[in-house]
Computed example of a mutant assay.
Amino acid sequence: MYFNNNLKKFMKENEISLNQLANICELSINTLRELKNNPSHNTNLSSLVILAQALDCSIKDLIEDDIATINFEKVAEKNKNNRLFIRQQVFSPENVQYLRNLFLQVGVPCNISSYGRYKTASVKNEYELSSIKVDFNLRVLDLKECTILQIVDFYVSVNQLLLNEAVIKDTLIKAFETYARKLKLNQIHFIIDRDYERQDDQYSNEHSELQAYFTYTLGTESMLFVQNNYERSPFPELEEYQIEWRKTLS
């Protein structure tokens, strides 16, 4: 597991100079300078133990605990020539947090997990007791002529006693557009099932402690995409089971 050290921040907060630290520490001044100026390079636990003893603090005080950011930085360094990383259009921790905040404004607390070198992500509910349940996958595609945010398996289940599925889906569609515009992506594609039969969400109904009536449809009515200025894919031969809706962002 990767980790960064917090030595530079710790020294600044405690007003300790490099020379002062070298006088009380068993590590050489060159090693200390390297640890301070390059937090992720050559940081090992044995060095942190020595530093913690010299500074009379815990090892935890000297470790950057944002593992998600550290891991992303490692992958970003390996992909520094990739256009998606250069433009910061992947599902980085910062972008994931922005998207999570958008969903919270809709009323959907969720967990967003990045994978596939941060070009794909899964979105699922974080709390079982939410009145809105979601489960879908996201991809960022980099084609020669454009970059695309793709939403697959647009599953949304809502408690019909409190909310309207169409209203929630419409708001989520607008949230995705806000996200795509922020990242300067060129297009949004929704891949939607053609199954429009309303079904009961038995699991959510059985586990709700209050009266609830959760339902969902795997498909999404065309009206929601048309009113948001989406167009159907120009390849009808691919629409036996799914429909693709596309929108180009200006």
Rank of each mutant, 00 (worst) to 15 (best):
L161S: 09
E239N: 11
L21Y: 03
P234K: 12
L32M: 04
Q105G: 06
V134P: 11
E177H: 05
F154M: 03
L161C: 10
Y127L: 15
F136N: 08
L32H: 02
E15W: 03
F10E: 09
K119V: 03
T220E: 02
K174H: 02
L102H: 00
C57R: 05
Y230P: 10
E15N: 14
K133A: 13
R87M: 14
K119Y: 07
N125Y: 12
E13V: 06
F72G: 01
V156T: 15
N82R: 01
K247V: 00
P93Y: 00
K80R: 06
V167C: 04
N14R: 12
Q187W: 08
K182F: 04
G107V: 01
L35W: 03
I151W: 00
I63M: 11
I70R: 01
L185P: 08
K124E: 14
Y118I: 08
N37K: 10
C146M: 05
I50T: 12
A212W: 06
T69R: 09
L210Q: 15
V90T: 15
S131F: 03
H41F: 11
F225P: 05
L102S: 00
E240C: 13
S113Y: 11
W245A: 08
P236T: 04
L21S: 02
C25Q: 00
L161P: 05
I86V: 04
L185F: 02
E126V: 00
E34F: 00
T248S: 13
V167D: 13
N111V: 06
L104K: 05
Q199R: 15
L84H: 06
L162W: 05
Y213M: 08
Q105H: 03
T120A: 07
D66T: 06
W245H: 07
D56A: 12
P109E: 07
I50H: 03
E34Q: 09
R232S: 13
E221F: 06
K124C: 12
E240A: 15
E221K: 13
I29K: 14
E177Q: 14
D193G: 02
N4R: 09
A68T: 10
Q160V: 02
S122G: 15
L138R: 05
V96R: 12
V156I: 15
Q199G: 08
V134R: 11
H207D: 02
V96H: 03
E209A: 08
H41D: 13
L7V: 02
K36P: 09
K78Q: 09
Y2K: 11
N101H: 04
R232E: 15
S233W: 01
S130C: 06
N6T: 15
